[in-house]
Design a protein around this nucleic acid. Structure first.
Lengths: 119, 119
DNA sequence: CTCGCACGATACGGTAGCGAAACAAATTCG
DNA sequence: CGAATTTGTTTCGCTACCGTATCGTGCGAG
């Protein structure tokens, strides 16, 4: 398995490069909180609900609702009713969301590789 | 020199962990854009001016002015007049800003090391 | 000396996000 | 059944940012 060893300097530089890449791109949506929500949905084991996400991220429920609204408009996630308990909804992944995170991963990986050349 | 090799999965997981750390912890209201500005000031070679930062980040000048306002309130950066050209100002680093980024670097490094254990 | 230009700051109108509180609907429990 | 609880949403008042346009000041060419 690839070991992940970073010096503090490398860490900041990597974060800088990626942040610059996101800012440069048309990433005008998706705030840091919303990105954290999106990543939780895609990386943690389902099912995901509003209250569950609110608890994991230590934010209030309306924050999740609003994040789902905006991310739903971009089709990055999908809301489905929970058949077992109709008070709840289940947040599901979408093809578009997976693609979006794939691009983010590529950005990070590429910036990390760039550092190897420059150092 | 430490090589920096990341799989896409590792990249997303790392970004997720760090984003969660920032969201969960006391986020200093620093926007992704503002963080990019702060990192540019600390990682790129000085001197830094409003117009220069605006160009590097591909944003308008008021964005820089406002970011300097809020970061200045937190003492993360400092404005100084440019003696050679009094129309310009020079943005300088502060002890508090360096400390803040040091903590950010630690967060990233720690999350990266945690991944080695879990994988 | 004057006029145009460059620099950073500000005004303005608009959008989006926030927390607290109130809300409707579904479930649970007495 | 009916009351209390849970779940997600909405409302309300507020703050933070944004981009465009404009301003005040300092510089510099003519």
């Amino acid at each position: 398995m690839t070991q992940l060893d970073l010096t503090p300097g490398q860490a900041l530089k990597l974060w800088h490069e990626v942040a610059m890449g996101l800012v440069h791109g048309e990433n005008r949506d998706l705030n840091l909180r919303q990105l954290a929500i999106l990543l939780t949905i895609y990386l943690e084991t389902p099912p995901h609900t509003v209250r569950g996400l609110a608890k994991q991220l230590n934010v209030t429920k309306p924050v999740i609702t609003r994040a789902l609204d905006s991310m739903g408009q971009h089709k990055l996630v999908e809301r489905r009713p929970d058949e077992r308990d109709r008070r709840s909804i289940v947040i599901r992944r979408t093809v578009e969301g997976a693609l979006y995170l794939e691009q983010l991963a590529d950005l990070i990986v590429n910036k990390a590789h760039e550092q190897n050349r420059h150092v």
